[in-house]
Nucleic acid binder design. Structure first.
Ligand SMILES: [Mg+2]
Length: 451
DNA sequence: ACCTGTTTACAACCTC
DNA sequence: GAGGTTGTAAACAGGT
C-alpha cells in the first residue's frame, strides 16, 4: 500500500515523530499507535494532515444533549458546564484554564503558548501543515492536531446536537471538549471558525427566538448542503457547497457595485431573516416553521416534522451503531465527478442515522424542524463501495465502542449518562471531556486499529 | 470591553 | 499553471 506508506511517512517525518517521543512521555495524547490511517490512500488529508492522528473520533461520545439554560440553548454544553450549573459556555479561556484542563497537557508548555505563536513557532492550530522550513519541534505535541478541517469540526458539532443548531460559543466548546489541541491558541482558531461560518454557504445563521435571548444566533447547516462528508470521513470535502442565491448575490454585487461594502447588508442571509420589524420574525411562528420546512423538498408540513422528530426521526448523524445501518439508495445531491476514487479518495458511503427521542421545549419546535429538514440527516443513508459507515478510517463514528453507542443513542438526552463514562475511566468532574474519551477509546479498543 | 459576524487579503496545498 | 479549498490575519461593524 503505497498510499499508506505515503501518509505514514509524511506524518512521521513531520509532526509525527516529535509527537511520539513527547507523547509517550506525557500524559494523555492521541494514540499514535493507532495511526493506522490505512485507507488514507493517496488522499491528502486536509492540507497535509497536519499532525498525525488517530483515524477518527467518537462523535457521539460527548455530544452533550442536555440543555444549558444559562445559554438558553438547546445545543451543546460541555461536560464541565453541565456539572457546574451551566455556567454558559462563554468565557472559555478562563473556564478551561482554571478547571484543570491543564492536566490534560501542557497547553502552554514547551513554547506552545496559547495566545501568540511567537516568531517561528509552528504552533498555529492548522498551520502545522505548512511549516515548509522544517524547523525542529519545540512545542509539546501532547495533543496533535486533528486531521479535520474547521468545516468538518463545525459540521460535527452541529450534526451532533439534536437540534442541529448551535451557537458560536457552543461550537467552540464542542471542539475544545473533543480536541485538547484546540484548547490552545483559541483566539487564532476561533477566528478561523468564525470566518468559516460566515464564508461558507453551508453554514447558515438562525435567529434566536425572543424567548431565548442571548448572544449571537444559532448556526445550522444549509438544508441543501447535502452530505458534505457523506462517507463519514470528515476530511476535506470533495467540493465546496455553494448556495445558488448567495452565489448570485456575490456575482451581481461584484459586478454592480464597485464598492463591495455598499451593496451588502441588503439581503439577509439568515435562514430566517427579518422581514418584519421590532424583533423580527421568530421561528416558532407557524409561518416561519413553514418557511423553514419549505426549504427542504421532503419536508411539507412542519407539524408532521415535529411529530416525526418527536418520534425520533430527527436523526443524529454521528455515531450510529453499526447495527442500525441501513442500505438505502437515493439520488445524490452533488454528483461528484467520480474521479478514480479508488486511488484518489477513500470509498464513500453515507453516514447512518439513529433515533433520538427528545422532549420538546419552547424552541424545540424549531429545533425539530431544523433537525428534520436536513437532507443529510434524513434516513437516506446508503452505502457505497466497501466501507461501512463505521469502518472508514476517518469516520467519526467508528471509534465509539458499540455499547457506548447504544447507551448514547438509546436513551433520552441526559448529560449524566453521557459523561458517566465511568466504565471508561473518566471522571466528569475532572473536566475530562470527549477528547479524553477519544484518547481512551483509542487505547482500549483494539478493533479501532484493525482496518 | 468583549463577543459575534462579515469581509478582504494572502498563503499553502491540492486537483485538474 | 489555473483554479479551488482551506487556514490565518486583520479590519471593521453591530450588539450586549
Ligand atoms: Mg455562512
Amino acid at each position: 500500500m503505497p498510499p499508506l506508506k505515503l501518509y505514514a511517512d509524511a506524518a512521521v517525518s513531520s509532526a509525527m515523530s516529535p509527537a511520539m517521543s513527547s507523547a509517550s512521555a506525557m500524559a494523555p495524547s492521541y494514540s499514535m499507535s493507532s495511526m493506522s490511517c490505512v485507507a488514507m490512500n493517496s488522499m491528502s488529508s486536509p492540507q497535509g494532515a497536519a499532525a498525525a492522528f488517530g483515524p477518527g473520533l467518537p462523535m457521539g461520545s460527548m455530544a452533550s444533549v442536555n440543555n444549558c439554560m444559562a445559554s438558553s440553548s438547546m445545543g451543546y454544553s460541555s461536560p464541565m458546564t453541565g456539572m457546574s450549573s451551566c455556567m454558559s459556555s462563554m468565557r472559555l479561556e478562563s473556564t478551561m484554564s482554571s478547571m484543570g484542563y491543564s492536566n490534560l497537557g501542557p497547553v502552554t508548555s514547551l513554547g506552545g503558548r496559547p495566545g501568540e505563536p511567537g516568531p517561528g513557532e509552528p504552533v498555529s492550530p492548522n498551520s502545522l501543515q505548512r511549516r515548509g522550513g522544517e524547523k525542529p519541534y519545540r512545542r509539546s505535541y501532547t495533543h496533535a492536531k486533528p486531521p479535520y478541517s474547521y468545516i468538518s469540526l463545525i459540521t460535527m458539532a452541529i450534526q451532533n446536537c439534536p437540534a442541529k443548531m448551535l451557537t458560536l460559543s457552543e461550537i467552540y466548546q464542542f471542539i475544545m471538549d473533543l480536541f485538547p489541541f484546540y484548547r490552545q491558541n483559541q483566539q487564532r482558531w476561533q477566528n478561523s471558525i468564525r470566518h468559516s461560518l460566515s464564508f461558507n454557504d453551508c453554514f447558515v445563521k438562525v435567529p434566536r427566538t425572543p424567548d431565548k435571548p442571548g448572544k449571537g444566533s444559532f448556526w445550522t447547516l444549509h438544508p441543501e448542503s447535502g452530505n458534505m462528508f457523506e462517507n463519514g470521513c470528515y476530511l476535506r470535502r470533495q467540493k465546496r457547497f455553494k448556495d445558488e442565491k448567495k452565489e448570485q448575490q456575490r456575482t451581481t454585487t461584484k459586478s454592480t457595485s464597485p464598492h463591495p461594502a455598499d451593496a451588502k447588508k441588503e439581503v439577509g442571509d439568515d435562514l430566517v431573516h427579518k422581514h418584519g420589524h421590532g424583533h423580527g420574525p421568530h421561528v416558532h411562528d407557524k409561518e416561519h416553521l413553514g418557511m423553514l420546512s419549505s426549504m427542504h423538498p421532503k419536508v411539507e408540513d412542519p407539524m408532521t416534522l415535529l411529530s416525526h422528530a418527536a418520534a425520533g426521526v430527527g436523526a443524529d448523524l454521528c455515531g450510529l451503531p453499526q447495527q442500525l445501518q441501513h442500505h438505502h439508495q437515493q439520488p445524490q445531491h452533488h454528483q461528484q465527478p467520480q474521479h478514480h476514487q479508488l486511488q484518489q479518495q477513500p470509498p464513500q458511503h453515507h453516514q447512518a442515522q439513529h433515533h433520538q427521542p427528545q422532549h420538546h421545549q419552547p424552541q424545540d419546535d424549531m429545533a425539530a424542524v431544523m433537525a428534520a429538514r436536513h437532507p443529510n440527516l434524513l434516513p437516506d443513508y446508503q452505502l457505497k463501495q466497501e466501507y461501512a459507515a463505521t469502518s472508514h478510517p476517518f469516520s467519526i463514528t467508528r471509534l465509539l465502542p458499540a455499547e457506548s453507542k447504544a447507551d448514547f443513542y438509546g436513551k433520552p438526552p441526559d448529560l449524566k449518562l453521557q459523561y458517566d463514562m465511568a466504565q471508561y475511566g473518566y471522571n466528569p468532574h475532572a473536566s475530562l471531556g470527549p477528547a479524553d474519551s477519544y484518547y481512551h477509546y483509542h487505547h482500549s479498543s483494539p478493533s479501532t486499529t484493525a482496518l
